[in-house]
Nucleic acid binder design. Structure first.
Length: 577
RNA sequence: CGGGGUGUAGCGCAGCCUGGUAGCGCAACUGCUUUGGGAGCAGUGGGCCGGAGGUUCAAAUCCUCUCACCCCGACCA
């Protein structure tokens, strides 16, 4: 492609709406343009990279026995009502009507549609297993689109679905996908961490998220340097405690303290000259219109997912009205002492508090010398807190947990029979019995991968594409259009590189060298060839290998061979194990 | 949804407090000079100051409403 005739709009300045590295670079290097919140146009350079990502996904999916299809984006409401998700999904499910007032959704995912498809056509155990996938634009009306393409409302996803006769078959399908994912991400030059995702709610079945470490990551990853355990912070069980507060008989009775306007644990601890560890954090949630009071140690953070699991229903933080109803106090002064007619649940670690400080259930007052058993009772002890960095690993109980951030680019999941039962995907087994298919689903954020790659492979001056998904392999700079020898050499190189099968952008614009270099750095194609008067006088052109940042002066004639050789070794490095 | 911020030329911004008919840099266009890391000089074009309503002789500026985009939060007890 000649740069003069292509579409390569680069920006000199940082657009004010962008903060994430990948977002800034994608705008500056002319990869994307925003249409509205969470909606982006992919310009040619991004489009080419996406095609390469998709190609790798297809190759590995096909190699793993999956079969590509393409399903509609628009889906009838009936399927979603059958599966029950019409009510479960919130406003992120985009609902709309057609001209005859029929309800539809813009597909955020396709479990319903595939299951409906398969339910009509796969009837025998002989037809299974099957694994169907598609690469398609999805829509989710996200609460807050973020970081450009990382969390967009419209995005490209590979979604795959497996259908097996039983759990064992599903586990096998799952493993094949897991391995295929590892291979494709490696080929794309991405560092991924497979992270255990859901251990409880899905009945202990398998689920992994593939995370790319990144500063702007949305998910907190917990990892144990000792045993290699990796999970989402939200799902990490807290290590059971050994210590309990020693029984003390000498603790004086409860004392009330005036703490005007002091609501947070930190404020109260500072005021009373105690530590957050000695405080009982009291939080009120509601589920099914009933209040649940949860006690935590003051230095701990509540894990709402764990609370919801214990309740067995979605929970919400209580409104100030509800809090007043329960505690007879303003928000910020709740405590476990004297509460009636409500469940009081506590995190295990509250047991370490011998004599605590808590809200007095009276606005602007706290109480000291609060002793469990003496002053208040707990209906249920559970693990309700988020693990913190340095906590003991719940798996090996030897290492200390570390925390990092990551972008989730893939998710593999054993679904079980939820959708097959709801939507009637049954098969006949060898004994003539009707059984629901056991499903798995496998997602990859194709467009998000683009952002993840740039997060991992870029600096402030530009992108540094892994060869396997570089939109173009070579950026060929003609530094002096007016110089015949230079132009002739550049043109010849352009032709021979194209003939050798490389993707090449020839900068044939009538611009100054500085502009060409800056744009070239922004684009960051793996190999840069500079044809200029200076070096051509010595019969050479300059080749920059971006991955090593090494510049070579070589003769124009040897250029194609040199790049071929480099390309092969670069590709070999990315080859899946 | 809550909080904060921003909307003025294609991009980045000033002007707003203290009303008086719109400006800077980059980009674009023309000419000359320049030509290995975002050139110099001279000139040209480009704005419903996000939108609506109001106050006023007069509104980018003050008031009300509204729309859009961005950031933070939704872990606060």
């Amino acid at each position: 492609m000649r740069q003069s005739s292509g579409y390569f709009p680069t920006l000199r300045e940082i657009p004010k709406e962008a903060e994430a590295k990948s977002h800034i670079l994608m705008l500056r290097a002319g990869l994307i343009r925003q249409l509205a919140a969470g909606l982006y146009t992919y310009l040619p350079v991004a489009r080419r990279a996406l095609l390469k990502i998709e190609q790798i996904v297809r190759e590995e999916m096909d190699a793993a026995g999956a079969i590509e299809i393409l399903m509609p984006t628009l889906q009838p409401d009936s399927l979603w009502k059958e599966s029950g998700r019409w009510d479960v999904m919130g406003p992120e499910l985009m609902r709309l009507k057609d001209r005859s007032d029929r309800l539809f959704v813009l597909g955020p995912t396709h479990e319903e549609v595939v299951t409906n498809l398969v339910a009509g056509e796969l009837r025998s155990y002989r037809d299974l297993p099957k694994n169907l996938y598609q690469i398609q634009t999805k829509f989710r009306d996200e609460i807050r689109p973020r970081f450009g393409i990382v969390r967009a409302r419209e995005f490209i996803m590979k979604d795959g679905y497996s259908f097996d006769v039983d759990e064992a078959g599903a586990a096998h399908s799952y493993q094949r996908m897991f391995d295929a994912y590892k291979r494709m991400f490696k080929r794309m030059g991405l560092t991924t961490m497979p992270v255990e995702a859901d251990t409880g709610a899905m009945g202990g079945s398998h689920s992994h998220e593939f995370m790319v470490p990144a500063a702007i990551g949305e998910a907190e990853i917990v990892s144990c340097p000792h045993c290699g355990y990796q999970t989402n912070r939200e799902l990490t069980p807290s290590c059971p405690i050994e210590e309990t507060a020693a029984k003390q008989d000498s603790i004086p009775p409860i004392a009330e303290v005036h703490t005007p306007d002091l609501k947070t644990v930190e404020e109260v601890a500072a005021f009373l000259q105690t530590t957050p560890q000695q405080m009982i954090k009291t939080m009120v949630y509601t589920a099914n219109d009933k209040p649940y009071v949860i006690l935590l140690r003051g230095d701990h953070t509540i894990n709402e997912a764990k609370v919801a699991r214990a309740v067995g229903a979605p929970i919400e933080m209580a409104s100030p009205e509800m809090i007043f109803q329960v505690t007879r106090a303003a928000v910020g002064f709740a405590g476990p002492v004297g509460l009636r007619d409500c469940e009081i649940w506590a995190d295990h670690h509250v047991r370490t508090i011998a004599s605590g400080v808590a809200g007095a259930n009276k606005t602007d007052y706290h109480i000291c010398n609060v002793v469990h058993g003496r002053d208040y009772q707990v209906n249920r002890w559970e693990d309700f807190r988020c693990v913190d960095p340095g906590d003991l690993c719940p798996k090996c109980r030897a290492g200390n947990l570390a925390m990092s951030w990551g972008i989730e680019i893939g998710h593999v999941f054993v679904l079980g029979t939820k959708y097959s039962k709801a939507l009637g995907a049954y098969y006949t087994d060898p004994n003539g019995e009707q059984k629901p298919m056991v499903m798995g689903c496998y997602g990859i954020g194709v467009s998000r991968i683009l952002a993840a790659i740039i997060e991992e492979h870029a600096n402030e001056t530009g992108i540094d594409w892994p060869v396997s998904i570089a939109p173009y392999h070579v950026h060929l700079l003609n530094l002096s259009l007016k110089n015949e020898a230079v132009t002739q050499t550049a043109e010849q190189l352009y032709t021979s590189l194209l003939n050798a099968g490389f993707g090449v952008v020839l900068d044939d614009r009538d611009e100054r060298p500085g502009i060409k270099f800056k744009d070239s750095d922004l684009f960051g194609f793996p190999y840069q060839i500079v044809v200029g008067e200076k070096s051509l006088q010595n019969g050479t052109v300059e080749l920059l290998i971006r991955s090593t940042n090494v510049k070579e002066s070589i003769s124009p004639d040897s250029c194609v061979n040199r790049i071929q050789e480099q390309f092969q070794s670069d590709m070999a490095r990315l080859a899946a194990a």
